[in-house]
Design a protein around this nucleic acid. Structure first.
Lengths: 140, 140
DNA sequence: ATGATAGATTTAAATTTTAAACCGATTGCA
DNA sequence: TGCAATCGGTTTAAAATTTAAATCTATCAT
């Protein structure tokens, strides 16, 4: 990474995910359960392959993602969140709540987001625990 | 605004503040108490004037900021958050918490952020109430 | 063997960001 | 009254990033 503009928490975070795409990938993993390049590529926002490849690389460099081989296909990778990545969940949730309160989000997503928020801390902790189980298992 | 890539809450939010600068301006207002162009300009990250002018305009267009004349100087504007803007506070806080937990933030900022987080809901509500008092008063 | 699928890389064009210079209006001070 | 500083910007040209599209090689199922 380059030298950061400042060491303010907000700035350091934005230098990692302050762009239009990075948090959409995290959303795809944390909310949609996606794990593969082609799955990310298929999201509604239609990211292009070079941007996706770049963002995945940056996320790995920043210790938010790792990957392991997919046994089903030698060229296929399974992307895994690290603890650092899983703990972005509250950030996503705060953003989703704000959006649902103030923007014209589509009904289905809004419903899902509100359910997650309404579940409160206990539900959110459970989801993060499940994520830890799913993503942090050692590469077998 | 252009047609959004999708109506997912995350995407809609990122189309507004998914960049390196926008949330730094919100931070300057919500956390640092800044209200003027020149104050934003003086922040550590050294934003340039045209980018700052553009982001302030976008924030106004998106209903997050407004401005009113500053009685002390005919050319001076006082920037005010709307309710929509003030309610970005939990988003900033979630990001700051994640940063403090996972990045090399400077000690002073980390301390401040942790204080805000440790205060919990009551402190956060109080801060947002103060902000409403300060920013939402009608232009006299 | 063939065609589909895998994760990319390459390219050239379009867009955004940047730093720096510049702007006219307003203000404080001598 | 004159002058320098300050106000919120705009303008500019260069640099960097983003984009869509085409392309690549390896793998896989049939």
């Amino acid at each position: 990474m380059n030298i950061p503009r400042s060491h303010c928490p907000m700035n350091l975070a934005l230098e990692i995910f302050g762009d239009k795409w990075t948090l959409l990938i995290i959303r795809d993993i944390l909310i949609e359960g996606k794990r593969h390049f082609r799955e990310f590529l298929a999201s509604d926002e239609s990211i292009s392959t070079n941007i996706l490849a770049d963002r995945l690389l940056q996320l790995e460099r920043n210790g938010i993602l790792t990957h392991k081989p997919d046994p089903s296909h030698k060229q296929k990778k399974v992307y895994c969140l690290t603890t650092k990545g899983i703990e972005l969940f509250p950030v996503l949730l705060a953003i989703a709540k704000w959006s649902c309160d103030h923007l014209a989000v589509d009904k289905k997503s809004a419903e899902h987001a509100r359910m997650l928020i309404k579940g409160g801390e206990p539900l959110q902790q459970k989801i993060m625990d499940d994520m830890r189980d799913l993503h942090l298992k050692p590469i077998k």
